[in-house]
Design a protein around this nucleic acid. Structure first.
Lengths: 259, 259
DNA sequence: CGTGCTCTACTACCATACCAGAATACGAGA
DNA sequence: TCTCGTATTCTGGTATGGTAGTAGAGCACG
């Protein structure tokens, strides 16, 4: 076991109530996936600030695990465009790249439009009911000011569409990409699109699907996905330190440069 | 250094001319990505047979590296749906799942259609020229019976479309997914779609893009992507041992089963 | 006082060691 | 001969040691 003295000096993590509160070794299952989810959530929520540098050993000490699972988590987070691993130099939490966010939306929109068109064309049995249930739950969450709960239900809504046509893989493939957009969403809680408006858009999508209106469903989905990022320019201005400077170069894309 | 005796007994790898011919330690750069590419190619080409079991230690010995880079490669190959890592039981090369291939095509088609539509709508400068060059090179490769070379040029063609509209990320995101389809393509060299026909389709796509015919470009792209898998049912029948049995259950999707 | 060099303190990467669980080989008993 | 319990030997997961390489601080020199 590693020496795990408190020594909270120079901690990049919020360390508000002791970061290692979530026990990884105690609970069941492999710790590598647990650590991955934990770190991703930490970054997406903005608790681990963009630009701050982390290290395998640092995180390993902090959570009382070895460097091995940390390394695996780092690699996946790099693929998701949240970290940049620079060999022998350090690993840095990437600032949000506006370009990367739009790239993610482009791919997500392409896939989700195809999904929702197929839904409207096939009108699979039970889907309309499922969507209605989710929308009802979303209204409840919105009423109770339960923002995190709403985000989970929002995900469930989109997943339900893919599952409806037997293409749950389509949503799985988007999950890695979605992280980029999620970071913006968490920043945009302050004065972004009100939840009732998002619910209204969900209802429009579900309605078009139930009616078998293919083109209408596509239009509704596109509007919805663009709405999510409508506040992006304003957010980027409000939090300049969270975002990559303007230039088009995106370090996240280049996984292996030929020097 | 690990004892690396020849002992070719019970080798799952073809071992035709000594598998470790490709030196990993000598050449430059981190060996983990190199090993990943090498293993992926080995699986996609069918040199490592579906259903065969591999182990971290086995591969590590074979290529004269430690288990660490092998492990990282395994993880990524699992995400790509090529391997199934079963803790404490073994890692198996997954058979091709027809469902998974169609899932991959669904996502790829959705993204590539969006790309090609944007290309036709924007008609970015220089793209038409680039596509024409690639098609010319493809004709040369097809004439010289250079199948692997043609596949590389085919990839370059699709990547060029994404790059044309400044969405190279779209192609990057597809690379992991594409592996499923590539496996089929390598099996289908025997009596599949003749290369001239594929080139004709490329020309149709490029022509529609150059003409700014958005819908026509979409149609051409869809036809092209479906053509690639046109021989799938026949291939699956011809190589039953390479494919997952009929039932809809796809082991590739379930990353963590709850036993 | 300004500038170049060395040397230290990190980093990620790779290799090795240890562990718990799963599958199988095997032998005793019926 | 067949069945069941046990021991061995695999597996992947985790922990830890070692190495090449980079960034930056401190010192020598102009």
């Amino acid at each position: 076991m590693i020496e795990r003295g408190p020594e909270p000096a120079a901690s990049a993590l919020p360390a508000g109530r002791g970061a290692a509160q979530v026990s990884l070794t105690d609970s069941a299952g492999p710790i590598a996936p647990q650590l991955l989810r934990l770190l991703r959530e930490t970054i997406v929520k903005g608790e681990l600030l963009p630009g701050s540098i982390v290290s395998e050993a640092d995180i390993a000490r902090r959570y009382g695990v070895s460097r091995q699972p940390v390394r695996e988590a780092f690699i996946k987070l790099q693929e998701a465009g949240l970290l940049s691993i620079r060999p022998q130099r350090g690993t840095v939490v990437l600032r949000i790249s506006v370009d990367a966010v739009y790239d993610a939306r482009f791919v997500r929109e392409a896939v989700e439009v195809a999904v929702v068109r197929a839904c409207a064309a096939q009108r699979p049995e039970g889907l309309a009911r499922r969507l209605a249930d989710l929308i009802a739950a979303q209204e409840e969450a919105a009423g109770g000011d339960n923002a995190p709960g709403f985000l989970r239900l929002d995900e469930a809504f989109h997943r339900a569409l893919a599952e409806g046509i037997g293409r749950s893989f389509a949503w799985t493939a988007l999950e890695a990409i979605k992280a980029q957009m999620d970071r913006v969403r968490f920043l945009s809680f302050e004065g972004a699109t009100p939840l009732p408006e998002l619910i209204r858009q969900h209802r429009a999508i579900a309605g078009a699907v139930a009616a078998g209106a293919v083109d209408e469903a596509e239009t509704a989905m596109r509007a919805h996905l663009r709405e999510i990022l409508a506040s992006l320019p304003r957010i980027a201005q409000a939090h300049p330190d969270y975002f990559e400077p303007a230039p088009g170069g995106r370090a996240a894309t280049r996984k292996e440069d030929t020097p």
